[in-house]
Write a protein that binds this DNA or RNA. Structure first.
Lengths: 344, 344
DNA sequence: TTGAAAGCGTTACCAA
DNA sequence: TTGGTAACGCTTTCAA
């Protein structure tokens, strides 16, 4: 059923019906309720493409997730974030269009999205420290919000976790427990989140007067094997770390395996702090989290970013805003005081 | 730039320009190339909503992922599947619209999608054995393909992994190694994939003349803690399992932890076979996989399903088809012959 | 308070 | 081989 059929059936003009349905004030209460009733009974739903064409608003938000290489899934973090944003959109009558882009420097994705009028705005995922997409989007003039941050460029809207502070605090916690040899198992540092985590870690070490030791730092894809192998290698060094700061729960599982294989016990001879991606999957070993979980933070971030974008679309000249989620993302797991073997 | 502007600039009618751009045969080669050149230079991209309205095709596919409860992320499997399907769509000029539905029995999601003309077809994720969405979709008449299967209803298109056979083969493998006490750590059995896995497991046990022991079976959300706790409990039984068949790598990590905590060694006193969700995350401990990885199968499934749906949209009266991915999803990890303690 | 008609940017039919 | 025009289903301006 379309507007014409509905208005014929009601013996009213399309104009009046449209106005009644869209809550225009000038239509009488009597007709409005009559129209709304008939629309509901007939199961009338306006054709979104027609609305879109008539109003110039697509009522659709694009999410762009880069697929770095073909082995790269988009992470559960994105899924959670997007699922959360999706709730906001449907609440405000928007749809979500997902684009998986092959390459971060293929400008045609954004030019295409803008020119095709497919979306009113875009949320950008997985930003790099120096990300070519920023310039393209700014040039194209499509409203956008970044999930995360770039380190090149300015004047854009973003929502990010405070990765820097989270890792700084976690490092400080370990320092306060007496640790002096703290290993960092980080994600790839082209990604801003990893870059900032490392920066936070280094800052805390500097503040604590502890020299940075590159042998205690690693950056790679976040896999169990990576955690196992790197932690194993580090534990077999003559002067081994007494604590690990780990970028993801899955890596932490590998670290745990390496520790137990080395005959050590987490929380006794070695401490581990995890930046947890999926807290619900992680057995915390009875240790109370020092901070709150990522899960809810990511949901919150998805909500913030989607709201921010919708507002930006309403008011395109809005000053660039940003949200730095002050929820801490780090949980403590099996943290304990520095064992005797750590006297450096 | 729109069609009118482009045709004015070229001193041609909109009709001719449209025909040239869409490769209609009746336009001369000279004009065609002239038009295409100008379009490319001017960065002309047709407004997809106008095309949509004029042709009646949305050129958009909907993916519907249920969010069972608010703690439920959509799994990495969906992400991988959707990412893969997304490639197909962009290759054929389609967009992907993602909908996260609150509840599986909210029929309005599908009626809405159909009535709003937002999509030409839908891919349904995470089917249950008895899924209310099937009837709704069949009634609405929107072309759809199920990622997985329902056990209620018939006559729909689907693409699924052969979960039944995978678990049957895996169980048989363990039986052939001499195991008689094989535990199953399954996902929730309202989901068809889990239901079928259990069926395959039971079938192999029956074929092997081994009695089914419900104390060796569990079904729950796939978390590390679940694997750890269930495996731990089972290993402490008077008559403990000698092998575990596990529904997900993340659960398997928990099983591994329980095994090592019990002082046993995987591949020696206890065997473990995993249905691996993310092979690349899993350290296989040097044991060669018996079968191939889920990762590539899921990508393949995403490709098959998206192609199937596009064909169905072309030809809506097509007979229901289905693809049962014969790629085996099970990998062997640390499988070994039945240890002496398993003499039953 | 209601309606007629133009317009959004395409495609597609019918003429030329 | 090209062009004029209706049509897609809405919103919105202008008139009544």
């Amino acid at each position: 059923m379309n507007l014409k059929q509905l208005s014929n059936q009601l013996q009213l003009s399309q104009t009046t019906v449209s106005r009644a349905l869209n809550d225009y004030p000038e239509v009488s209460e009597a007709t409005r309720s009559r129209v709304k009733l008939a629309a509901a009974k007939g199961g009338y739903r306006p054709d979104m493409r027609a609305i879109s064409l008539a109003t110039g608003k697509a009522k659709t938000i694009g999410h762009v997730v880069p697929m770095a290489n073909k082995d790269d899934v988009f992470s559960p973090i994105f899924a959670e974030f997007i699922a959360s944003a999706s709730q906001t959109y449907s609440q405000y009558g928007y749809e979500l269009m997902l684009t998986v882009e092959k390459s971060r420097d293929d400008a045609s994705t954004y030019r295409g999205l803008a020119a095709k009028r497919a979306v009113d705005g875009v949320i950008l995922h997985s930003p790099q420290t120096d990300d070519p997409r920023l310039a393209v989007l700014q040039e194209v003039g499509l409203p956008f919000v970044v999930h995360g941050r770039m380190l090149n460029g300015e004047g854009y809207h973003w929502v990010d976790m405070d990765n820097h502070n989270a890792f700084k605090l976690a490092t400080k916690l370990l320092l306060d427990l007496g640790h002096r040899r703290i290993a960092l198992l980080n994600g790839r540092e082209e990604m801003t989140f990893a870059w900032l985590r490392r920066a936070g870690y280094e800052e805390a070490l500097n503040d604590g007067g502890v020299a940075i030791n590159s042998e205690f730092m690693a950056a790679d894809d976040l896999t169990e094997r990576y955690g196992y192998q790197k932690a194993g290698a580090m534990l077999s060094m003559k002067v081994a770390p007494t604590a690990f700061l780990v970028s993801s729960y899955i890596v932490a599982l590998g670290v745990r395996r390496a520790i137990s294989q080395a005959g050590l016990v987490m929380g006794e001879q070695v401490s581990v702090i995890i930046h947890d991606d999926e807290l619900s999957y992680f057995d915390n070993g009875g240790v109370k989290p020092q901070f709150t979980s990522t899960r809810s933070s990511v949901r919150q971030a998805g909500y913030e970013a989607s709201k921010m974008l919708l507002e930006l679309i309403e008011n395109p000249d809005k000053e660039p805003t940003s949200v730095l989620m002050d929820t801490q993302l780090v949980i403590g797991s099996s943290t304990g005081p520095c064992p005797s073997l750590s006297e450096s």
